[in-house]
């Protein structure tokens, strides 16, 4: 689902922009996307369906923000292992100190 959703380059670019720059309106996103507003809106609906963005209505504008938590299944093992190796490096340094004695 996530891969399929993000496989489209335009959709991925929209998502990446939201990640980089934070919450934005459809109009703001359209201005620099190179595609029409209905097309951007359609991509946003797909992203929303995948849980990758959240929308917030304010007056006549809809604001979209990225939901990074949705990416957890993809980046999970790397963040797990990053924490694992940091802790093991601490243990390794303790051992190296003991080896001096």
């Amino acid at each position: 689902m996530l891969f399929k959703t993000l496989a489209d380059p335009t959709r991925r670019a929209i998502f990446e922009r939201l990640c980089r720059e934070g919450e934005q309106t459809v109009r703001a996103l359209t201005a620099r996307s190179g595609v029409s507003q209905p097309a951007v809106s359609k991509h946003l609906r797909v992203l929303k369906h995948a849980g990758l963005v959240r929308d917030r209505h304010e007056g006549r504008q809809t604001h979209y923000s990225p939901q990074l938590g949705a990416l957890a299944p993809l980046i999970d093992w790397t963040s797990q292992m990053a924490g694992f190796w940091q802790r093991r490096f601490d243990h390794l340094e303790d051992l190296l100190k003991r080896m001096d004695r």
């Binding site: 790397t78 292992m81 990053a82 190796w85 490096f89 390794l92 340094e93 051992l95 190296l96 080896m99």
Partner: peptide
């Protein structure tokens, strides 16, 4: 995907090598 962890350690490579390769260590 890949994960990189790096750190400076005030010990010579030979000693760290032993810690990486000898079973009890």
């Amino acid at each position: 995907l890949s994960v990189v962890t790096e750190r400076e350690m005030p010990h010579p490579p030979e000693k760290i090598w032993r810690a990486l390769t000898q079973q009890p260590l």
